[in-house]
Write a protein that binds this DNA or RNA. Structure first.
Lengths: 212, 212
DNA sequence: GTCTATAAATAGATAGAC
DNA sequence: GTCTATCTATTTATAGAC
């Protein structure tokens, strides 16, 4: 197992270039479809460098998953721990996911793929991050219930109502372009801010019992 | 290119067995990850039979995609064309997707994967089906607007609010089991009917302007 | 219609030079 | 740290017997 220390000489963030190229490749083709040679090429490096920096293809992929879910988890916990009132925390929760997803174009596709695979590639640490995201939402809801501002709603439903549309919006951007060319124009004129605001309103409408 | 006619003798729905096995395999591992041998084994047949019935792996996959999206499209158009009032049509729209997704366990994972891939495997016919689903929703909304029952909302947002949570709910069933074992119990107690009703209410709450 | 055997290509991984 | 060359396993696809 190679143990590369700090870069010694010419290394212009080689490891980071590999991670970025790999993330794009995994997002576009999935774990099985991703090709080590293509990743190396995209990073303007050689295939051997991947095995110098990472144990194997699976380890490289896990690294990307950890970064993704770790970032969301951190931001989401921050929202839950902030001093804001429950409704504001819900808005922060939505924003947290949106911001991290936007910071990583590979995020929504990879998240979808992991769901499709039943989380087959998630190691224990990453699984904990995923669980923590749900737990943080649960805490926010519980707090709102105690403050008599929220109805008690199953966090999984609220979570699905937030994460589902949000990821779908980001991940379908390319597909909507294709649909537009096939003659469905409405599919494109959709502002990011409107989407986020709408999803926040839906979540709060649900929790504050304004749905019926 | 093999042109198998009707089954002549012992064929106990061979083609259908292959399709079923393939759907499960594609759902679990994606297009690239799916293995022709495994599909044949699962159908208790030989790999060569796949190439007897289908041109190649891609054609087999396309067949499954066509069936999926064709079924949803048909049911959704039916809902849009029914005599029901707009609000009931929205409920039918949600049910249509839920019913077809439940009839095919492979449906939600494969849909997610296609989104992640930007619809790379969708041929023109299937792409039209996808577009028709969105169009049908757009028509229902338009009808509701004309009847002064709905606010005019971008169909893509409404669609995301329906399809996102619905697919997420169905597709995360396995992952939620894993989460439960990792100590997040709330993740499982969630009834199918409650989820569907909730998503219907969210869509109608959005369209009828009850969100704020 | 169904199978065995095999061709042909792809792709993950490693050894070793520089 | 980086590259070339190569080994090896996997896997799509086909030829041809029954």
């Amino acid at each position: 197992m190679p143990r590369p220390g700090k870069a010694t000489r010419a290394d212009a963030g080689t490891r980071e270039r590999l991670l970025a190229a790999a993330a794009a490749e995994f997002a576009a083709r999935g774990f099985a479809g991703a090709n080590i040679d293509r990743i190396a090429d995209a990073a303007r490096l050689n295939k051997a460098m991947i095995y110098y920096h990472f144990t194997n293809k699976a380890a490289l992929y896990r690294e990307i998953l950890r970064d993704m879910f770790g970032a969301v988890q951190a931001r989401v916990r921050e929202a839950a721990a902030s001093g804001a009132p429950p409704a504001a925390k819900i808005r922060l929760f939505v924003t947290a996911i949106a911001v991290e997803a936007e910071a990583r174009p590979h995020f929504p596709p990879i998240w979808f793929r992991e769901i499709a695979e039943g989380g087959a590639h998630l190691d224990l640490e990453t699984l904990r991050h995923v669980a923590d995201i749900l737990k943080a939402l649960g805490q926010i809801i519980e707090e709102g219930v105690r403050a008599r501002q929220f109805k008690r709603v199953n966090p999984v439903i609220v979570h699905a109502g937030i994460v589902g549309p949000l990821l779908l919006y980001f991940a379908t951007q390319p597909l909507r372009q294709r649909l537009k060319k096939a003659g469905v124009p409405a599919a494109v004129a959709l502002g990011r801010d409107d989407v986020i605001a709408h999803i926040q309103n839906v979540a709060l409408g649900t929790l504050e019992g304004r749905l019926l």
